Amino acid sequence: MDGLHTFGLFIGSLLANTLASLSGGGAGLIQFPLLIFLGLPFSVALATHKVASVALGLGAAIKYIRAGKLNRSMTAYVMIAGTLGVILGANAILFVPGRIAEAALGLLILGLGLYSLYQPGLGKAENSRRRDHKGLMLGSLGLAAIGIVNGSLTAGSGLFVTLFLIRWFGYDYRQAVALTLISVGLFWNGTGAVAMYAAGADIYWPWLPILIAGSLLGGYLGAHLAGRQSNRLIKRCFEALTFLIGAKLLFGL
């Protein structure tokens, strides 16, 4: 790539990961199509995006750890609950045509945004529930199912986790976003990248330093902004991103 394309790749990655870090997911909305636009085949772009997006979770983790706002036990729970699903999804996507799956996922994500939009009080304040043994066991099944989506498709799984943590466990948006970024961004995406590579997917290594820099900085910046904003604003960002990602997946924009 020449200097202009390199700069564009960095800015695109920075923007995508800042928005994802603020909203709880969706970095693939910009970063993944950008890799295809710049010439990478679908499977190579997907695997490269997965590796780079690990830095999103790392950047957010650094910020939340420094701020003393990391719920370590719940982060570990979300990480472990979704891991098997991530591995299954990462292996399945290499053999399944993606267009129908992407359209179906687009409809689901649009539904998430509409649900949040028409639930004005959702996630604005913490309302602890289902955090006993039974609730955690049942919740792990939901997270494992979302893990399959994370491993197999390009964008949107973090948004599912964010809303699931709000609806099932009663977290507010700020808490749910923090848990999602570290569990999904750092651990699920890392697991998915390793699983795809082990299954034979190629990674375009020359672009990774640029993507990692944009993801790391974007993750930290988005986490910083999320910590300073109200749950109401984070909720609106979440809804806007669900509509954009849902439309992209559904209509192939």
Rank of each mutant, 00 (worst) to 15 (best):
D2L: 00
G3A: 13
G3Q: 09
T6K: 06
G8C: 02
L9C: 00
L9N: 01
L9A: 07
S13L: 06
L15A: 13
A16G: 10
N17W: 01
T18E: 01
T18Q: 00
G25K: 10
L29H: 07
F32D: 11
F32C: 13
I36N: 14
I36V: 14
L38T: 06
G39F: 10
F42A: 15
A45Y: 07
L46Q: 14
V51A: 11
A55Y: 12
L56V: 07
G57Y: 14
G59N: 10
Y64V: 12
Y64I: 08
A67K: 11
A67M: 11
N71L: 09
R72I: 13
M74H: 11
M74C: 01
Y77F: 15
Y77D: 09
V78P: 05
T83H: 05
A92R: 00
L94V: 04
R99I: 12
R99W: 08
I100D: 08
A101G: 13
A101H: 03
L105R: 07
L107W: 07
L108E: 02
L110P: 02
L112M: 05
L112I: 00
L112T: 03
G113T: 04
Y115W: 05
L117Q: 13
Q119D: 01
P120M: 00
P120A: 00
P120Q: 02
K124I: 10
E126I: 13
N127E: 14
S128A: 10
R129A: 03
R130E: 01
R131A: 03
D132E: 07
H133K: 14
H133L: 14
M137C: 09
A144P: 02
A145N: 00
G147N: 01
I148A: 04
G151E: 09
L153Q: 15
G156C: 07
L159R: 01
F164S: 00
I166V: 14
I166Q: 01
R167H: 05
W168K: 07
W168A: 06
W168N: 04
D172N: 15
V177H: 03
A178F: 04
L181Q: 12
F187I: 15
W188R: 01
G190S: 12
G192L: 12
A193L: 05
A193C: 06
A193S: 08
A195Q: 11
A198R: 11
G200C: 06
A201C: 08
D202I: 01
W207K: 04
I212D: 07
A213P: 06
L216W: 03
L217C: 09
Y220F: 15
L221W: 12
L225F: 15
A226G: 04
G227P: 08
Q229T: 12
S230A: 10
S230W: 11
N231P: 05
R232C: 02
I234Y: 06
K235A: 08
K235Y: 03
C237L: 12
A240H: 03
L241D: 01
L241Q: 04
A247D: 06
A247T: 15
L249Y: 07
L250F: 15
F251D: 03
